[in-house]
Design a protein around this nucleic acid. Sequence first.
DNA 1: AATATAATAGACCAATTAGTCAACTACTAT
DNA 2: ATAGTAGTTGACTAATTGGTCTATTATATT
Lengths: 202, 202
Amino acid sequence: MGRVSDAKQRLMDAVLELIWSGSYGSTTIDNICEKAGVKKGSFYYFFDSKSELAAEAFEESWKTKRIELDSIFSPTVPPLERLNKYFDFGYKFQREIKAKHGRVLGCPQVTLGSEICTQEDALQKKIQGIMDQKRKYVESAIRDAHAAGEIHAPDAGAKARMLLAYYEGLLTQARIQNNVEVLREAHSGILTILGVKETAAA
Amino acid sequence: MGRVSDAKQRLMDAVLELIWSGSYGSTTIDNICEKAGVKKGSFYYFFDSKSELAAEAFEESWKTKRIELDSIFSPTVPPLERLNKYFDFGYKFQREIKAKHGRVLGCPQVTLGSEICTQEDALQKKIQGIMDQKRKYVESAIRDAHAAGEIHAPDAGAKARMLLAYYEGLLTQARIQNNVEVLREAHSGILTILGVKETAAA
DNA sequence: AATATAATAGACCAATTAGTCAACTACTAT
DNA sequence: ATAGTAGTTGACTAATTGGTCTATTATATT
């Protein structure tokens, strides 16, 4: 009962875009409200602070992202193909973002995490939790590939950490340089890290 | 002639520490002045804005960092040893930082670059210039190692980009997780990327 | 010692910011 | 239809922010 509204959702959408396309620090509550078309009184009706909104928004956004990832990393798909599709998806996604925003924006979690980790404890934990989950997709694909004898990776966790450190490093470079083409090297880099023969899988 | 002072230097030191231990956005001119023990009137005597100060501070800091790197990457040192020393230095450095600040702070350039690249154009260019120079150290070591037949890396530039994407990805993870031990995997990761037999060089 | 000047001090302003509040509105369940 | 409730509004405060300006101080040179 009572009045209904999607203002909460609009606030979450707005904060994600503003943080991603700019930064956490440069995103003010007034900014968020304006972008969401919501008055400040309503902001404080739904949230206590910018960091609380950001945490909820990242959580909510992760929930929908998981659905995509569940599909990409479906165990019915051959493990190396899962990884290929994932990284290829990342490239195409960043290209879309560049076309839409005029900027390569990289990985929202890494960008935000790196900015706020020394200052916003709750938010940092939320981000880290999401990144831990994301790593599990990669880890299980690597484990399956190893089990299938397609790669040699007895420590799937370590290999997944390495692969993601590399890939997220690339995404960060792409963001800083505003250049998607940085990501074109991802494919051969990933093969190197996984120890796959390049000609065979390419 | 006229009055002498190290206030300009103190401002540059202060801004570097505040940005690194926190973020660009959370660092205010008042903060910087307080930390440097400099009044705001003096701030604006030396600099026009926070971003100008940051750009000069990063430039100045890079100049001294280069001296260290010139030593580590001296062509008199065997190429793979240069790389080993560089990454090993990074680990020890981050451990010192953690002991001193209670936090792992990662790479200042990547952290700042990722935060401000969509908003502060001059600063972004400055950061990118520094990162380009940094890559050249790694690139020449890789080229020398390839020439010596110690690794197979016909495209030294590509290998350097890959190595740094990985390493900076790791540093970012270490920062976000506030955990130096993340960097312990760097050594074996680097060997994998360089294609060196792990037992031979470890 | 006098002078020009590099640097400092700190009061000041205007704009922006986070956050509050009480009155109001629309909707839903009964 | 009406009562209770979920959501809205906008004006308000207090604090912080970036930025300016003028008077003052210290020092290196002559």
